[in-house]
Measured scan of single mutants.
Amino acid sequence: RFRLSPAARNILEKHSLDASQGTATGPRGIFTKEDALKLVQLKQTGK
């Protein structure tokens, strides 16, 4: 289970993504908004 920032949680839910597909870069291993946006971008480019 990942620790998600509220913004990251919202983005992941909106795009039906799972945090385990990305890398948490925030302090103390928190999955940040920026991490979520990177994951969305990867999904949109098909990689």
Rank of each mutant, 00 (worst) to 15 (best):
D18L: 02
A8I: 00
E13Y: 02
F2C: 02
R9F: 13
D18W: 00
A36P: 00
L37M: 11
Q44W: 02
K14I: 11
A24V: 05
L42I: 08
Q41E: 15
D35E: 05
Q44P: 04
R3A: 04
L39T: 04
T23S: 11
G26K: 03
S5L: 01
L37S: 09
L39W: 01
L39A: 08
K14Y: 08
A24R: 04
P6C: 14
F31M: 06
Q41D: 12
N10S: 14
G46V: 10
L39N: 14
I30E: 15
R28D: 15
P6N: 13
E34T: 08
I11R: 06
A19V: 10
G22V: 06
T23D: 13
D35T: 00
P6K: 14
K38D: 03
K47T: 01
L4Y: 12
R3L: 06
S20F: 03
R28C: 13
K14D: 11
P6Q: 13
G26P: 03
K38F: 01
F31G: 10
L42M: 12
G22L: 05
A24E: 07
F31D: 05
T32R: 01
G46T: 13
L4S: 11
D35L: 01
K38S: 14
D18F: 00
L4W: 02
I30D: 12
L37T: 13
S20I: 02
A8E: 11
I11S: 05
H15F: 08
K33F: 02
K43G: 11
G29K: 04
L4E: 12
D35F: 00
Q44A: 13
Q21G: 12
T45S: 15
G46L: 09
T23R: 09
L4R: 03
L37W: 08
D18I: 07
T45A: 15
G29F: 00
G22H: 04
F31V: 07
T25D: 03
Q44H: 11
L37P: 03
R28Q: 08
S5D: 12
F31T: 11
R3Q: 06
G46S: 13
I30L: 15
T32E: 05
F31E: 12
F31H: 10
L4N: 14
G29Y: 00
L4I: 15
L37C: 06
T45Q: 10
N10Y: 10
S16L: 02
L42Y: 13
A7W: 00
T25W: 00
L17S: 04
H15W: 10
R28K: 14
A24Q: 03
L37N: 04
E34A: 11
T25Y: 00
I11V: 08
A36Q: 06
K33S: 08
S5W: 00
S5A: 09
L17P: 13
L12I: 12
Q21Y: 04
E34Y: 05
A36R: 01
T23L: 09
D18E: 01
V40F: 03
E34N: 01
I30M: 15
G26A: 03
L17K: 04
A24L: 04
G22F: 02
A7E: 15
Q21E: 14
Q21M: 13
I30Y: 08
L4Q: 07
L4F: 09
L37Q: 03
E34K: 13
E13W: 01
E13S: 07
S16W: 01
F2V: 04
Q41M: 11
S5Q: 06
T32L: 03
T45F: 11
P27K: 11
R28H: 10
Q44G: 12
A7D: 10
K47S: 13
L12Y: 00
E13I: 10
Q21L: 13
H15K: 06
R9A: 12
G22E: 05
L39D: 12
S20G: 10
E13P: 03
A7H: 02
A19E: 11
Q41T: 12
R3M: 12
A8N: 01
E13F: 02
A8S: 06
R28G: 15
R3Y: 15
K33V: 08
F31K: 06
I11N: 10
